[in-house]
Amino acid sequence: MHHSIEIEHLSFAYPDGHPALRDVTLRIAPCEKAALVGPNGAGKSTLMLHLNGILSGKGVIRVSGMELNPQNLGRVRSQVGLVFQSPDDQLFSPTVFDDVAFGPLYQGCPPDEVRARVDEALAAVHMSEYARRVSHHLSVGEKKRIAIATVLSMKPELLVLDEPTAGLDPRARRSLIRLLDELPLTMLVSTHDMLLVRELFPRTIIMDEGSIVADGPTAELMSNTALLEAHGLEMP
């Protein structure tokens, strides 16, 4: 049986020479929910951009058992639902429907299948009646849900989220946590929200300066005050 994600010895440096990832090795099992924490600039976003080949460094990445290479980029991308931090970047179409339909359209689904997938994805995030709405009239919380629907419509195995709770008021945050809890997918979530980590993710991965510095059960890492402090994190 394959893993959802397997990363072996991944290193990456930006064109200006600044190293962003140093020898990262990581495995995530199907339906596992893991949190990725660490200070800003630790390499969390860079790592996420590698998971569907937007950036490519040295090393091996396998998604659902497929090795990531230029030939199967399209298939890998439909397995990895990558949701960016700002929903205004994620939602680039005039209407909610167009945005959720974008992924299936580029996967080559026939029109009826596209419509069915949009209905299904919007139902999964409890936003069915929003299909005809215009994105810029939505609240931040609504936009975040639609942003998740835009990748759910591609039927991915794995959901990768960047700062899902940033900028949400307490009620919108609570409803988003409930949503993440009920989605039956593998999840890798980068966040600064340690309360969210403790509540939702059995496993935590700590990154700093481009490397994984700790990886284990959330409860265990959270009680290690020295470790947290050393990497600029705070126990909730």
Binding site: F84, D89, F102, L105, R115
Partner: peptide, 23 residues
């Protein structure tokens, strides 16, 4: 900067430079 991020969001959902739409 925003257009860079939008481009990444499009690419990660399969965008390949061609403009596609439902009939």
């Amino acid at each position: 900067e925003r257009s860079d991020r939008i481009y990444m969001a499009m690419v990660s959902r399969g965008y390949d430079g061609e403009i596609r739409s439902l009939p």
